[in-house]
Design a protein around this nucleic acid. Structure first.
Lengths: 342, 342
DNA sequence: ATAGTCCTTTGCAGCGCTGCAAACGGAATT
DNA sequence: AATTCCGTTTGCAGCGCTGCAAAGGACTAT
């Protein structure tokens, strides 16, 4: 049995296919009587528009793609959780892609290619991609970039003020009286811009407090996973003069660091205070709960989608803008200690 | 500037559009010389096939949709991480949908509707959906169901043997000498089949060990999140005769339960041993690390995709099958204690 | 040299919808 | 009663590709 088409409905309703299309899309002016007739026919035949045909006719897919490095990273999962409904509400479906942070893979996605027809726009959280890759992309692709990557003027960028946030986090540690503060997660190379901004905040907080920065306490990691935090922390604790606080560039890193600290029989925060970044759900339930910088993920998701849809709808190029979303410091047990001891 | 089409390439190469199509798709027999000419033309013009047009012509979208209740639940995120590359490898793109476990939302997705044209098949992990909803779905939709939901013969089901796995988990607690064992996560209503299977395993393990089952220790929760575990555990500990072990129906529940236990100044596993389910990454880094039932997620993902693609390609109905994937018990600190004390 | 065979290439039609602009019909105006 | 006007409805063409079956060409066999 063939799927019913616009033409079938038109025939039954005694109008032209074009009118049925108008009714289906809510287009133009259609008299109530005509609309009623058409709707009755649609209901009777159980008609549903063929999106594939519509896509071809309009040249748009009604889909956007969200590209993240890792899907099982809670931060991205939580972000996606916000993006999908926001897009759906505006009539877009969401394709999801993960790149494993691979530069080539990311490059293929933003470049030209057959898949390009499948989405009208892209929200990407690049990891391996350098600035020039972004600029060399398919210029017709509406693009919104998440995370720290300054716009070159042809796409939008949505994110929190990383320097300010990092500064707050470290200032919090200093305010608690910590003096040997380590940073875990620096990435002193071109694609590590996000990390570098946090490092800048780390320095700024020291400067603001009149404290010297011990450069040897800035530890680089290639990723922001638990294992990275665990490993880096182990190295720090092996030193003759270990830190009394750590600023971790993600909550996962913080989680890994805490794991190592506790595993050595030391206490958090008494021996080493730990603060993370991202405010993932884990941090609210781990033992101890993790102090963190909490970006407003819902706001990021909504803003990114709104902005992307705006770009898609635009008939001529829009200048790229930097969009800042709010964040706040949330102090929990990993810096304050348990409530009972406070 | 117009996008180059098959026709443009054909013209430049001096062949028919159909031949270009054959080259692009690797169809039929094409002589090496022809192929070379066409490929040269493709390269020169930077041609990329228009997937939208292909979709309309073939009536297939080349997309599958994966429907999960929650994306920020680590288990689903990890699963998706396996599904996407597996599908990609077979030439399918993955749409992602989350339903918040809402029955109506899930029902809309598997029913008829315009979006239906957007995917050739669906992998769904239903939560709110009852058996009859699944049976009442669009019969033309190739479907693979994850989690515990016995197939009605028109779709496939992929998952581990929940009863056996739950039995193992509880047997592990019993083997450690625990006698007052609680279960957190039962859902004694139609849509709670997965939970009920675990409860069945809980009972089976007691029976096998010749232990009585204290029904009052089986605690129901509406979801499998941390907060559910935390709340249920608090209620258990408030009792005059609290349990000395808990079998939690997810690692998140276990995490929440541990949070509560430690928050009361009790020890895990000395005072209360805890075992979870799912083997999410958190459990390997939390303090203490969480003993758990580890399903082979990669196997589930691969099997689900393979099976779905098979269904999509099939010209006539395939009988639904039950596909069991492996699982194993992983004992960690939450039942064994820290290595030093062992 | 001619017919037969087989493999490559082609032409046609159409997937189901929408953009565009013209046609239509009824109401308002003169 | 004839004309103008305006909002609704329509017809046409085509988005770019593929399925199908037939045409074409090269080669083999007789």
């Amino acid at each position: 049995m063939r799927e019913t088409t616009l033409r079938d409905v038109a025939e039954l309703a005694g109008v032209s296919p074009r009118t049925v299309s108008n009714v289906v899309n809510g287009y133009a002016k259609v008299t109530d009587t005509t609309r009623a007739k058409v709707e009755a026919a649609i209901a009777e035949l159980g008609y549903r528009p063929n999106v594939l045909a519509r896509n071809l006719a309009t040249g748009r897919s009604g889909q956007i793609v969200v590209v993240v490095p890792y899907l099982d990273t809670p931060y991205f999962a939580e972000l996606l959780q916000g993006i999908i409904p926001a897009a759906r509400k505006l009539g877009y479906n969401v394709l999801v892609d993960q790149t494993d942070g691979d530069r080539q893979h990311e490059g293929e996605l933003i470049g030209p290619g057959p898949r390009r027809f499948l989405y009208d726009g892209m929200i990407i959280s690049p990891l391996g991609l350098a600035q020039e890759d972004l600029s060399a992309r398919d210029p017709a692709l509406p693009l919104v970039v998440l995370g720290e990557r300054v716009s070159d003027g042809t796409f939008d960028h949505v994110g929190i003020d990383d320097v300010a946030a990092a500064t707050e986090a470290v200032a919090h540690l200093i305010a608690l009286g910590r003096r040997r503060i380590a940073a875990i997660g620096d990435q002193p190379y071109p694609t590590g811009e996000a990390a570098q901004l946090r490092t800048r905040g780390f320095r700024a907080a020291h400067t603001a407090a009149g404290q010297p920065v011990d450069e040897s306490l800035i530890i680089g990691t290639t990723r922001f996973n638990r294992i990275d935090g665990a490993t880096a922390m182990a190295a720090l604790l092996d030193r003759p003069n270990p830190p009394d606080a750590v600023f971790c560039y993600s909550d996962l890193v913080a989680s890994g660091a805490i794991h190592t600290i506790l595993g050595r029989g030391l206490r958090v925060p008494e021996d080493v205070a730990v603060i993370g970044y991202d405010d993932i759900e884990d941090g609210r339930y781990s033992q101890p709960t993790i102090s963190t910088i909490s970006p407003d993920k819902k706001a990021i998701a909504q803003l990114a989608v709104d902005r992307l849809v705006l770009r898609i709808a635009a008939t001529e190029p829009i200048d790229g803008v930097e969009l800042r979303t709010p964040h706040r410091l949330i102090a929990r047990q990993s810096t304050l200690g348990t409530g009972t001891r406070m």
